[in-house]
Amino acid sequence: MTASSSRGGPEAASPRAAAVSIVVRARPRRWFSSQTSRRLAFGYLLLAPAVLYVLLLVGAPFLFSLFLALSDASVADTTASFVGLENFRAAFESDVFYIALRNSIGFTVVAAVFKGLLGTSLAFLLLQPFWGRKFIRGLVVIPFTLPISISVLGWKWMYDSQFSVINWFLSRIGVIGTYGSAGWPVWLGEPHLALLACIMVNVWRNFPFSAIVLLAGFTSVPTEILDAARVDGTNFFQRFRHVVVPMIAPILLIGLLFDTVFTLSDLGVVYLLTQGGPANATKILPVLAYQVGIQAGALGRGAAIALFLFPLLLPLMILMLRNLKRREY
C-alpha cells in the first residue's frame, strides 16, 4: 500500500493514485468507491456509536457542569440564570470549603505514602518464586476487588463505638483499657481519629493495587540487565535506584495517577463511614459537592465545588497523556 492511499480520502483521487489503479484494475474507478475510502467509511461507521456516547454522556455533561457552576441552578427552580463566578466566590468565602480542600489533599497524600510503602514491600515479596504464590496473591488482592460500598460496611462495623474488634485487640494487648475507660478510642466519633480511620480504609483497599502494578513493572525488567549490573559490582540499592526505577518509571507513574484519581474523587469511603463528620473533620471535596449539590439541591454550588477537583487532577492527566503516547504493544 502506498503512503498516499493509506492516508486515504481525497488523496486517492490524485492523478498518481488514479494512474496506479489504472495499471492494477485496467479501468479507472472513482475515489469514493476505492478500497481505502470504503475501509475508512466502514471504520468511521464502527467508531461513531462510541464517539457519540462519550460526547453525549461525558463531553456534554462536562460542559454542562461548567455552565451550572456559573449559574444559580437548583433542584427546586428549573429556571437558572447566569451568575458568573458567584459560586466560586461563595466557595472561597466559606470555611467548610477550605477544610474540605485541605482534607482532600492531606487524605490523598498521606494515603499515597502508605500505599507506596506497603505496595513496594509486598511487590518485592511477591516477586520471589515460592510455593503457593498465585494463591497468596489472589488472597492479598481481595480488598481491591471487593465492591467499595461492601467493604466500607465491614469497616464501619470494625470501627463500632462499643464492639469494635480493633479495640478488642488493642485492649487485649494492653495498648488501651477496657470499654468505658478514658483511652477507649471512638474511631468515627473523634475528629483526628475519624480522618485516620478513613485513610486506613483507603490504604487497605488500594495497597494491593499498588503492589500489583509495581509487580507488573518489576517483572518487565529483563533479568539479563540486572545480571549485567550485578557483574559490574553494584549492590541491591544501586541496581534498584539506577536500573529498576528508570525502567519501570512509566508504569509507576500510570499506577500513581490512577490511584490518585480514584482516591481524590472517591465519595464512598467517607460518605458511608462518617458523612464528613464529626465537625467536618473528614469533610472532603466529593462529600461536600454531594451534600451541597444533591442533598441541599444547590446544583450550581455543587458543580462549582466538584470542578475544583479538576485543576487538582489536570496536571496528572496531562502527564498520563504524554505517557500513554509513548506506549508500545
Binding site: L57, V58, A60, P61, F62, F64, S65, L68, L257, F258, V261, F262, L264, S265, D266, L267, L285, P286, A289, Y290, G293, I294, L299, G302, A303, A306, L307, L309, F310, L313, M317, M320
Partner: peptide
Amino acid sequence: LVPGIILFIPLA
C-alpha cells in the same frame, strides 16, 4: 479518568 464526582450533577 474523568471522575464521576465531576459528572454526577449534570448527569442528574
